[in-house]
Amino acid sequence: MHAEQRKKLINELTDLIRGGNAHVTLEEAITGVPAHLRTVIPDNLPYSIWQLLEHIRIAQKDIVDFSISKDYKTLIWPDEYWPQPTDNVSDEQWEDSVAEINDDQRRFFDLLRDESKDLFSPLPWGSGQNIVREAMLIADHNSYHIAEIIVARRLLGIWK
C-alpha cells in the first residue's frame, strides 16, 4: 500500500471510529443526560444509559488491548463486558468513563498511524484478525450502542 493510500485509509477509519457522518457521536449522545437519569432503565429496555456507556468503554478497551498486545487477557462474556445495574453514578465516574473511551481511541489511532504495523496482516496472537478489521469493529460496535443510548434517551423524554 502506498503511503498516500495508507494515510487516506487511516483518516477514514479514524473518522468512522470518532462517529458522526451518518450517525451522532458519543459526545452528542451523552451530552445533557441529567445525572438522576443515567442509571434509569427505561421500560422494555435491558440497560440504562450508564450501562451502555460503560459497555462501550469496556468493549472498546478490550478491542484496543487485543489489537496492541500479545499479552491480551480475554474477558468473560457477558459478565465482564456488562456492568450491573446501579442506582447512582457520580459525575466523576461518568467523566472517567468518557475520558477512558477517548484515551483508548487515541491509543488505537496511534496504532493505526504506526508505520511499522501492517494494517492488513493477521495479528500473530489472534485467529485471523487484523488492525483494519478491529478498527471497523470498534466503529460498528460503538455506533450500535450509541444508537441504543439515543433510544433510551427518547424513552426517557430527554432527546431532541
Score class of each variant (00 low, 15 high):
residue 2 H to P: 14
residue 2 H to Q: 14
residue 3 A to P: 03
residue 3 A to Y: 03
residue 5 Q to M: 10
residue 6 R to S: 09
residue 9 L to N: 03
residue 10 I to C: 06
residue 10 I to K: 05
residue 12 E to G: 06
residue 12 E to L: 13
residue 14 T to I: 14
residue 15 D to I: 00
residue 16 L to A: 13
residue 16 L to H: 14
residue 17 I to V: 10
residue 17 I to F: 01
residue 19 G to F: 00
residue 21 N to Y: 08
residue 22 A to G: 06
residue 26 L to V: 10
residue 27 E to C: 05
residue 30 I to P: 08
residue 30 I to W: 02
residue 36 H to I: 03
residue 37 L to R: 13
residue 39 T to Q: 09
residue 40 V to I: 10
residue 41 I to S: 04
residue 42 P to V: 06
residue 42 P to D: 06
residue 43 D to A: 12
residue 44 N to S: 12
residue 45 L to A: 05
residue 46 P to K: 09
residue 47 Y to W: 15
residue 48 S to K: 04
residue 48 S to Y: 00
residue 52 L to H: 00
residue 54 E to W: 00
residue 55 H to A: 05
residue 57 R to M: 12
residue 57 R to T: 00
residue 59 A to V: 12
residue 63 I to S: 00
residue 65 D to M: 10
residue 65 D to G: 00
residue 66 F to C: 09
residue 66 F to P: 04
residue 67 S to W: 01
residue 68 I to N: 03
residue 71 D to C: 01
residue 72 Y to L: 00
residue 73 K to F: 08
residue 74 T to M: 13
residue 74 T to G: 08
residue 74 T to P: 12
residue 74 T to W: 08
residue 79 D to H: 11
residue 79 D to P: 03
residue 79 D to S: 12
residue 80 E to I: 08
residue 81 Y to E: 10
residue 82 W to Q: 11
residue 82 W to R: 11
residue 83 P to T: 11
residue 84 Q to W: 04
residue 85 P to G: 01
residue 85 P to T: 03
residue 85 P to V: 01
residue 86 T to P: 00
residue 89 V to E: 00
residue 91 D to M: 06
residue 91 D to E: 13
residue 92 E to D: 14
residue 93 Q to S: 13
residue 96 D to H: 06
residue 96 D to M: 10
residue 100 E to P: 00
residue 103 D to A: 15
residue 103 D to F: 15
residue 104 D to R: 15
residue 106 R to I: 14
residue 106 R to F: 01
residue 107 R to I: 04
residue 108 F to N: 05
residue 110 D to E: 13
residue 111 L to V: 12
residue 111 L to D: 05
residue 111 L to E: 04
residue 112 L to I: 06
residue 112 L to K: 07
residue 113 R to S: 15
residue 113 R to K: 15
residue 114 D to T: 11
residue 115 E to R: 12
residue 116 S to Y: 03
residue 121 S to A: 15
residue 122 P to H: 11
residue 122 P to G: 12
residue 123 L to W: 07
residue 123 L to S: 08
residue 124 P to K: 03
residue 125 W to G: 14
residue 126 G to M: 09
residue 127 S to E: 15
residue 129 Q to C: 02
residue 133 R to I: 07
residue 134 E to T: 07
residue 134 E to R: 13
residue 135 A to S: 14
residue 136 M to R: 11
residue 136 M to V: 09
residue 138 I to R: 01
residue 139 A to M: 11
residue 140 D to P: 02
residue 145 H to C: 04
residue 145 H to S: 07
residue 147 A to V: 04
residue 149 I to K: 03
residue 150 I to Q: 14
residue 151 V to A: 09
residue 151 V to E: 14
residue 153 R to T: 09
residue 153 R to V: 08
residue 154 R to Q: 15
residue 155 L to I: 13
residue 155 L to F: 11
residue 156 L to E: 09
residue 159 W to K: 02
